[in-house]
């Protein structure tokens, strides 16, 4: 990075020279980076695939080996965005449908969760009243909420969204309230001396001071919502990666299931990284004092 920026500021007339220079100094670094970060997981992956291939190649195997998975799902892999109407759409659409539900449910969870977390963190009375309720409710498994929400909403889509909401909200509430309660007395005193009003205190002191905690709650929350959506969709049907898996099971398309699992894992991984990255950007400098 450093060499890149210094070479970029060098004289333009020496462009040729610069690009040569850059090529020489950057490539070894990229190569070591790739070697260090991608080679080990790649080796392990190949090994695992090899073992799997060996285990499932026999005649009595119940699951397909990776080679068969790829050949059977090749069309799905090639064209993730086909649309034959109804539930018969590509994997891309299935995942986007699931992501949309997660986005809606998770957004509600963020707003309500941070608000409740601030309340519980700020007010001792709110904490005494609400904390026991939260502690009990958060242990209820996500899917146990589904029948209740189906009864309440009378519709499958809002019910799935509600399940996401109720799954993601607890870690957000709890982490936010811990973050608020851990705001150093000094920062409160600064606010009092400056006579910041409630809103200014909220935006200028409370949110930034609690941001590292809030983001760790958000990160746990997004992971849990992705876990819950797959299970919820299996039950409610419609377009979505969860129901796709269920549908594939009913049609005995084991290879499709395996492909879907790979996609679910990758998307979950990227969601986690996305929130972690946002957190790093927002809380830059906050944690170190």
């Amino acid at each position: 990075m450093k060499t890149l920026s210094t070479t970029a500021t060098e004289n333009v007339s020496a462009l040729n020279h610069v690009s040569m220079n850059r090529g020489r100094s950057i490539w070894p670094r990229i190569r070591t980076y790739l070697l260090q970060n991608f080679l080990p997981p790649l080796v392990i992956l190949c090994l695992l695939l090899g073992v799997w291939e060996l285990l499932c190649s026999g005649t009595g195997a119940t699951l397909p080996p990776p080679s068969q998975v790829i050949s059977e799902t090749w069309e799905l892999i090639l064209d993730p965005f086909y649309d034959n109407g109804g539930n018969d759409v590509g994997m891309g659409w299935q995942i986007l449908a699931s992501l949309e539900r997660v986005a809606v449910g998770y957004s509600f969870a963020v707003i309500v969760g941070v608000a409740l977390g601030v309340l519980v963190g700020q007010s001792t009375w709110a904490m005494r009243g609400l904390d026991p309720v939260f502690q009990v409710l958060r242990t209820v498994p996500p899917l146990a909420w589904l029948p209740i929400s189906l009864a309440g909403f009378q519709d499958s889509n809002p019910s799935a969204i509600f399940v996401i909401f109720i799954t993601a909200i607890w870690p957000i509430i709890i982490n936010t309230s811990v973050g608020i309660r851990n705001i150093p007395e000094d920062y409160r005193n600064v606010a009092r001396v400056l006579r910041l009003n409630g809103l200014e205190y909220f935006y200028k002191i409370m949110l930034p001071a609690a941001a590292p905690y809030i983001f760790s709650g958000l990160r746990i929350g997004v992971g849990l919502s992705w876990l819950a959506i797959v299970a919820a969709e299996m039950l409610i049907g419609g377009v979505g990666i969860g129901f796709f898996i269920w549908d594939a099971w009913n049609a005995s398309l084991i290879s499709d299931i395996i492909l879907a699992l790979v996609y679910v894992g990758l998307v979950g991984f990227f969601l986690d990284r996305l929130v972690a990255m946002l957190g790093n950007i927002v809380t830059r400098g906050t944690s170190a004092s």
Partner: peptide
């Protein structure tokens, strides 16, 4: 304050 209490963000 003794410990400066600047806002770190």
């Amino acid at each position: 304050f003794q410990n400066h209490s600047l806002l770190p963000w």
